[in-house]
Design a protein around this nucleic acid. Structure first.
Lengths: 188, 188
DNA sequence: TGCTACCTACCGTACGGTAGGTAGTCAACC
DNA sequence: GGTTGACTACCTACCGTACGGTAGGTAGCA
């Protein structure tokens, strides 16, 4: 049986990814977890605290995945890229869901200050990891591109985030696959 | 002296671009226009109606600009591209502002149904215009690329939207210029 | 007379958050 | 071994605030 706090984080994250932080309420979370609103607040004393906890948990799991890939010398750059793209492909099959950082980025002005710093770090984590893959891939001779790894990684990261964003309104789920295909092709 | 209805549309649009549709309230608009809340509702009988009116006005002006460019035989494809990118470059100098469609796309699940269709059309307008520029530019021999114009225009549009999105949290205003430079370079 | 633009006053709802209480668990103590 | 106290998880009931929206009235103008 999952602990209540973990359930709250799970439900909260899902709600942010589908409806956004502002539209996520303690009440919604309480209903989905099966408890009452004040009990949610008992675990996370404010909405901002809950938001920060959700981002931090996500960042932690992301960081550990990064380490696992980094320390596996058998992984090729292409496999690392595929791993990086896999969650995006997952979003391609769920019309209204979006990467956590993308959902939060769209709401930055409405976010409590505590959360903004986390979101910023979050974006930088993502972009920098892609940068590392690109740099080592080119050094190994596996990947081929003209731009600097920093600039290209920023651009590709932005493209992925933008595709997720646009997907929400157009419901054109095939775009994500197309975009990833084009990116892969560009790097050969 | 500007008409009140126009002022309401102006202020409303600005609020959507900075804070988002959900966080935009009749009260905020009333204060900035210099009237009381019910007077705003007198002009636009519901928040959804106001939202639709704002998008429609934007789409109309965008469409007329499109026609003007299309019907000017002296404009090169590069000039058309520059014109297309110019509003994005403007956003590069305003940290918290975002393209109207991008701001709304991030909130699609929270939007009233009437607005969703408008947002969708909005995105398609933008993307299709870029597609036309790319297609005619290649036909003229001015532009050079391998992908189909449809696929490439979607990708570039997504990249621009994503860059605006990411900008909100990172405050890295130089990215937009960089991205546009890279795109221009790609098309040579 | 009728219309437009605006106003004050109000309504119901939903939100984040608080106050205060209850039931269960567990360790410390006589 | 039973009693006590502290702690945790959860509850009901409530508060202030802000929202979208309504009712009804007024001043000016054609």
């Amino acid at each position: 049986m999952k602990e209540t706090a973990t359930k709250i984080l799970d439900v909260g994250q899902e709600l942010i990814q589908t409806r956004g932080y502002t539209a996520m309420s303690f009440q919604d979370i309480a209903v989905q977890v099966g408890i009452k609103k004040p009990s949610v607040i008992h675990h996370f004393s404010s909405k901002a605290d809950l938001g920060v906890a959700i981002i931090q948990r996500y960042r932690d799991t992301f960081a550990s995945q990064l380490e696992a890939i980094k320390n596996d010398p058998e992984k090729t750059s292409w496999e690392a890229l595929e791993f990086y793209f896999s969650p995006y492909l997952h979003f391609a099959s769920t019309p209204d869901t979006v990467c956590l950082c993308g959902a939060l980025a769209g709401e930055v002005p409405a976010l409590p200050e505590k959360m903004r710093a986390e979101v910023k770090q979050f974006m930088e984590d993502h972009q920098r990891w892609l940068e590392v893959i690109l740099r080592t891939g080119r050094k190994n001779g596996e990947l081929n591109f003209k731009e600097t790894p920093a600039r290209l990684s920023r651009m590709l990261f932005n493209t992925l985030q933008g595709t997720l964003l646009v997907k929400r309104s157009t419901d054109d789920l095939s775009q994500l696959k197309d975009v990833i295909k084009v990116i892969m092709h560009m790097l050969k």
